[in-house]
């Protein structure tokens, strides 16, 4: 915990944005390990892949484009300090009546949660309680979550996408090839590694019932493999391998798959996302439902992360290219 504070303070002080981005990655990693010590393995997994992985990657990409030094102008720190101080004081005030950390008898542990712990095995039949709650009891929130990430994907597309001219494309990819020729060893190693990463993604995808993991983490890992490929072999090559329109449509398919499970259960006479009616045996129905929606989540997340990354990287290529031309 003390480490976290150090990192956070460092972020305030450091002016080199590149370092700030790295520090925020470290911050994500530290909080992920903190989550493990607090028994939240699923959350730790996700935070590690998002906080230390994707977010940092995006920040680095942005910093690469916008320049790494910050012009340090201090302005209105008094007002900011005041706001922060009042908010902080209110929060500290709030903690005074809180149940203590780790208290078994805290109201939060007594009311709704016990049912999940005691009955989820009988009602859903999945070892990982987090998965049962995520994918069944509170499946609608998770649906919302997929929609949020999809919205972000579309938002990034709306902001950053542009119709590229073929000649730009050719020039850029030729640049890239010459640039990437050099790292022969890295490329060979990663060529061997990438299939394994993809395999691991599939494992995480379908293993969520028993251990930590699930659609979201799997999607991120899958996307990471593709991004690794793109970074090593150049954007041009990766873009030829992966059709953008196809990726967009697949992201939509992921969201729709999730929704269709819900619609199917409505057609079978249940409520939206009621998996019990999907099969003769309610528990089997739950299994089937969770499997499909997790797949939907996985597909949507993987595709959206790829969309986001490619659009960021494309922008960099273009801006670099323009800069080159000017020189």
């Amino acid at each position: 915990m003390t480490f976290l504070i150090c990192v956070a303070v460092a972020i305030v002080r450091v002016k080199d944005l590149f370092a700030v981005a790295m520090l925020s990655g470290i911050y994500g990693l530290l909080s992920a390990s903190l989550f493990i010590t607090m028994d939240a393995v699923d959350v730790a997994f996700t935070e590690a892949s998002v906080g230390a992985g994707i977010s940092t990657l995006l920040m680095l990409t942005t910093v690469a484009m916008t320049g790494r030094t910050e012009h340090y102008v201090r302005h209105k720190p008094l007002l900011a300090l005041l706001v922060v101080f009042v908010t902080g004081a209110l929060l500290i005030y709030a903690t005074l009546d809180m149940p203590y950390f780790g208290d078994v008898l805290a109201p939060a542990n007594l009311h709704v949660a016990p049912r999940y712990i005691q009955d989820s095995m009988r009602e859903i039949g999945v070892d990982n309680i987090v998965t049962s709650v995520l994918a069944s009891y509170r499946a609608f929130d998770t649906f919302g979550e997929v929609v949020v990430i999809f919205t972000a994907g579309i938002g990034v597309l709306a902001l950053l996408s542009f119709t590229r001219r073929p000649e730009d494309d050719a020039e850029i990819s030729s640049d890239n090839i010459s640039m990437h020729e050099q790292n022969m060893i890295v490329r060979i190693v990663s060529k061997i590694l990438i299939p394994f990463i993809l395999l691991f993604a599939l494992y995480v995808q379908f293993h969520g019932d028993f251990g930590p993991g699930g659609g979201f983490q799997a999607g991120v890992i899958f996307a990471a493999a593709i991004i690794l490929y793109a970074m090593l072999f150049g954007m041009g090559v990766a873009r030829r391998a992966i059709n953008q329109t196809f990726v967009q449509l697949f992201a939509a398919v992921g969201v729709l798959l999730y929704g269709m499970v819900g619609v199917a259960s409505m057609l079978n006479g249940g409520n939206f996302l009621d998996y019990n009616v999907l099969s003769e045996d309610p528990v089997a129905g739950q299994h089937l439902g969770i499997l499909i929606i997790e797949l939907g989540v996985g597909i949507a997340v993987a595709m959206v992360v790829i969309i986001i990354f490619f659009n960021f990287a494309d922008r960099i290529d273009i801006s670099k290219h323009k800069a080159d031309k000017k020189i």
């Binding site: 009311h111 709704v112 609608f140 409520n271 939206f272 996302l273 009621d274």
Partner: peptide
């Protein structure tokens, strides 16, 4: 009142 996923009250949404 409409129960998402057929889970009632405070357990479901």
């Amino acid at each position: 009142v409409y129960e998402m996923g057929g889970w009632s009250g405070p357990w479901g949404i």
